[in-house]
């Protein structure tokens, strides 16, 4: 499975930013943890995390199938150092304004480097089987395989 960790996806989704056994007390805690991973992996400055919370207060980032995509506001873009994602899985679930979130795909983006990956995530959300596989993933390789943009498959 080593080949899945090459190419644009690997540059965007650092293996160290895939955390599959997380716990969070509530939605804010889950967002803070997601933001902390982006900070740890050098994708954003700590100030970004507050804009993630601000964004969540204006419109929920819940996107269906137990997945949320927390990210900052327009004002937060200055705190982004590079386009990057983090995947955090909360096996026990987190209450998200009445929805139950198991997977957070946290986003930091200045440009459009992450567009293909989000397109792939949308495809997963439209496919209940793949969505379940994402919610139940216990290996980083499984997450990378699921999120790999289809047009990247011939690159490796």
């Amino acid at each position: 499975m080593a080949e899945v960790a090459t190419g644009p996806l690997a540059a965007l989704l650092d293996r160290r930013a895939i955390r599959l056994g997380e716990t969070a007390a509530d939605r804010e805690d889950a967002i803070r943890r997601s933001g902390a991973v982006l900070v740890e992996t050098g994708a954003v400055d700590p100030a970004y995390v507050d804009t993630m919370l601000a964004r969540e207060r204006s419109v929920s980032t819940y996107v269906g199938e137990g997945v949320a995509i927390p990210h900052g506001t327009l004002a937060g873009k200055d705190a982004v150092r590079r386009d990057a994602l983090a995947v955090l899985r909360f096996p026990a679930g987190v209450d998200w304004g009445g929805e139950q979130v198991v997977v957070c795909v946290a986003i930091a983006a200045r440009g459009d480097g992450h567009v293909a990956l989000l397109a792939q995530l949308a495809e997963i959300l439209l496919d209940p089987e793949r969505a379940r596989a994402l919610r139940e993933a216990t290996e980083a390789d499984e997450v990378l395989r699921l999120l790999k943009p289809v047009d990247e498959e011939t690159d490796s």
Partner: peptide, 8 residues
């Protein structure tokens, strides 16, 4: 922000 849900 034009970086998350709108992209999707």
């Amino acid at each position: 922000a034009g970086m998350g849900s709108s992209v999707m």
